[in-house]
């Protein structure tokens, strides 16, 4: 029985079996169906914790003086809504808080910010303030803990 030569340059049209190809397509389809998730992609907000033994000494804060050594932002929860206090001055909107933080950032960009959050404040508002500090450029944000160390 004569067979066509296999190492010749002239080959006929390609004869491909479709069955395995269809198998692969089905497999890929099933893979993508199983792994499809309609969640929004997650991002992270990093924090920088100060460990005990590395905390700088506390300096008293004079709220009137512009030359600040650190800012204390208190987030309170009153009447089902958040309220903010920066160095003991009350603010009722996040935009005002942002303005104060931007002003402080213009003076000193590496100003330490201490976030003192009321226990009943939802994480949404906590992250709002923390995100605001990061947006304004203040990277040194610490969370005040009300637990005896």
């Amino acid at each position: 029985m004569r067979r066509p030569p296999y190492h010749s340059e002239r080959r006929g049209p390609l004869e491909v079996k479709m069955t395995p190809m269809i198998d692969v397509i089905f497999l890929l389809l099933i893979f993508f169906i199983c792994t499809a998730s309609f969640q929004m992609p997650e991002e992270i907000l990093p924090t920088r914790f100060l460990l005990p033994g590395t905390v700088a000494s506390e300096t008293p804060i004079d709220p009137e003086v512009l030359d600040l050594d650190e800012i204390v932002v208190k987030v309170l929860w009153r009447d089902g809504g958040p309220q903010w206090q920066i160095n003991d001055r009350d603010y009722t909107s996040l935009a005002e808080v942002r303005a104060v933080l931007e002003a402080a950032a213009r003076i000193k960009i590496d100003l330490p910010v201490i976030l003192d959050v009321d226990p009943s404040v939802p994480m949404e508002n906590v992250i709002d303030v923390y995100d605001l500090c990061r947006k304004v450029g203040l990277e040194r944000v610490q969370f005040a803990a009300s637990v005896a160390a």
């Binding site: 997650e42 991002e43 992270i44 226990p119 009300s146 637990v147």
Partner: peptide, 25 residues
């Protein structure tokens, strides 16, 4: 509420974990 998350952060600080991140969208 913050009172649920605060003990977690305090625990991390106590155990010497300095790399704590919050997941957000």
């Amino acid at each position: 509420p913050y009172r649920v998350v605060e003990p977690i952060m305090v625990t991390c600080a106590r155990e010497g974990v300095w790399k704590v991140t919050f997941s957000v969208v």
